[in-house]
Design a protein around this nucleic acid. Structure first.
Length: 219
DNA sequence: ATCCCGAGGG
DNA sequence: CCCTCTGGAT
């Protein structure tokens, strides 16, 4: 279990390393971020940023997306994977945004979760980045992995459990940016396949480092 | 073979 | 809890 001081130290260390605690998806409109996050499921943000400019140029409004032929949307987003479900979600969610929410992305967890293709991860990201709700935790693959290694959670891989555990220990005004910084850290240093512990500033507070790197268990 | 800022259904 | 959906990169 981490003390409040240790958590604060981790938060500050990451803030110093990655001053911008922001999302790396490119977007202009709120709904573009919503759909970009949907496209980012099991896909890199880098690849999403390669397909969204053409997609949002071909369908420049929510109305255009709502009336789009799903098979044509599939062609634009094919390289992001899960293209059938993603294309269907984008078109159906566009229709629902227009019919139920006046063409605006809703700002509550309850309403966001009603949109097809929007789960807790996407909803939390919108609440944090667009609506600036304090205490938001975006429990994505990087967040789950790294906070588990650090010992900020019990090691569970269940996104909702991780979200709830982190909510209890993270400063509400820092939690959203902190999650974005974990993404950067997951790409550059705490890489899933091989963590670069030698160059990690979080070593002093990391359970994985102290157990498996500093003093490897010899079996 | 494993991972990438997941969601939905059983 | 489990499984499936999908392509690209390493």
């Amino acid at each position: 279990m981490k003390s409040t001081e240790e958590v604060r130290a981790i938060v500050e260390a990451l803030k110093e390393l990655y001053p911008d605690g922001i999302c790396s998806l490119d977007y202009e409109k709120d709904y573009e971020l919503l759909f970009s996050v949907r496209l980012a499921a099991q896909c890199t943000d880098e690849r999403v940023n390669k397909v969204t400019p053409a997609l949002f140029a071909r369908f420049p409004t929510l109305e255009a997306l709502a009336n789009a032929d799903i098979s044509e949307v599939e062609q634009y987003i094919h390289s992001t994977g899960f293209f059938r479900a993603k294309a269907r979600d984008i078109v159906l969610a566009s229709q629902m945004l227009l019919s139920e929410y006046g063409g605006k992305v809703p700002g509550t967890m309850e309403d966001l979760l009603k949109l097809p293709g929007v789960g807790r991860k996407t909803a939390n990201l919108m609440l944090g980045d667009v609506f600036h709700v304090p205490g938001v935790v975006v429990a994505d693959t990087h967040c789950i992995r790294i906070t588990g290694l650090l010992g900020l959670t019990d090691g569970s891989k269940d996104p909702t459990k991780v979200e709830m555990q982190l909510r209890k220990v993270l400063p509400p005004e820092e939690s959203n940016d902190f999650c974005h910084r974990l993404v950067f850290h997951g790409r550059a240093v705490c890489i899933a396949r091989r963590p670069q512990c030698g160059e990690c500033v979080l070593r002093p507070w990391c359970d994985y480092f102290s157990k498996n790197v500093a003093e490897p268990a010899k079996d």
